Computed example of a mutant assay.
Amino acid sequence: MGCSSSFFLTFSLLIAVLSVSYGQPLVPALFIFGDSVVDAGNNNNIKTIVKANFPPYGRDFMNHIPTGRFCNGKLASDFTAENLGFTSYPPAYVNLKTKGKNLLNGTNFASGASGYYEPTAKLYHAIPLSQQLENYRECQNILAEVAGQSNASSIISGAIHLISSGNSDFLQNYYINPLLYKVYTADQFSDILLRAYSSFIQKLYAMGARRIGVTTLPPMGCLPAAITLFGFESNQCVERINNDAINFNKKLNSTSQSLQKQLPNLNLVVLDIYQPLYQLVSKPSDNGFFEARKACCGTGLLETSILCNRKSIGTCANATEYVFWDSFHPSEAANKILADNLLAAGLSLIS
């Protein structure tokens, strides 16, 4: 593990110890929106093929049970909840049989294959961000009934709202959809996504959210599936796809700065996951990993969701040696490092 990773690990532990010593989390609640990187099981019971509620998903999670997380264990957002001092993870909203008090510390609205671009979610029958917002509105009404309007407003304004989106828009739609890539350049498509992002933030703000963290796109061209599909057998990160991510991330930063100036008392922080994940991929051994080209599940080259299943031959024995669990998603070990970086980057959200 490199020096920077060690620093972030020490830093996150210090924060966690401080929060535990005071006997309460650093913020009242954590609300999560977005895609499969942070989906905690909202896709389990909807009609989509984008699911992860079966083995070997979840094999290293509590009780070795697949919960719908696209990972062998904890997501970066789960570690974030721990780092903030929560003793449980924001539950998948759609799956909650009894909501009420279960929502007091926040909840998770994310859906695998959702994106800023509404048609991406519709393509895979996932829950689009517009519906995630409607679910949040319903959640707020329930909170008001349980805690009273004043307390509910205080929880919402003090809570961290975490958003992870955009990856599916490119990898699961734009790059494979001639109706998009023949009409728009990647640069033009990113502008469409950022208009949707800006609208989403403004709606979230209008609903009372004041502390918002949004993750950048990862180095999409380094995901095993992207190299397999678009790398022309090079076995190297696909530079043009990484450049699309870098370009999007620059625009995400400038758009977020504009929103911050435009909306009073908004604390909007862009959380970079591009650089930390790129470091893990380009120098895996420096961070304690053995393999960064292939994922743990199956051949590790293309499997995700239903292709990564109990019968996937060759699934690795020890996922801690792999940067990726399936061909799109990081392993729990990688998520831990990413979460520690997110905590340091998002310090202003909790100060």
Rank of each mutant, 00 (worst) to 15 (best):
F7I: 04
T10V: 08
V17S: 15
A29Q: 05
I32A: 02
V38W: 05
N43L: 14
N44P: 03
I49M: 06
M62D: 13
N63D: 13
N72E: 06
K74Q: 14
G85M: 09
T87I: 08
S88V: 08
Y89M: 12
P90G: 09
K97N: 08
K97R: 11
T98G: 05
G100Q: 08
T107H: 04
T107G: 04
Y116G: 10
L123P: 03
Y124D: 04
Y124N: 04
Y124G: 08
I127A: 02
I127M: 06
N135E: 08
I155V: 12
H161V: 13
H161N: 13
N167I: 15
N173M: 14
Y184M: 13
F189W: 02
L193T: 05
A209S: 15
I212H: 10
L217T: 01
G221P: 00
I227R: 02
E233L: 14
C237S: 09
R240F: 11
N253V: 15
Q257I: 07
P264L: 04
L266F: 11
P276E: 08
Y278H: 11
K283A: 08
D286K: 14
F289G: 10
A292G: 04
L302M: 07
A319N: 08
T320C: 00
D326T: 00
S327D: 03
N335G: 02
N335Q: 06
D340V: 02
N341Q: 13
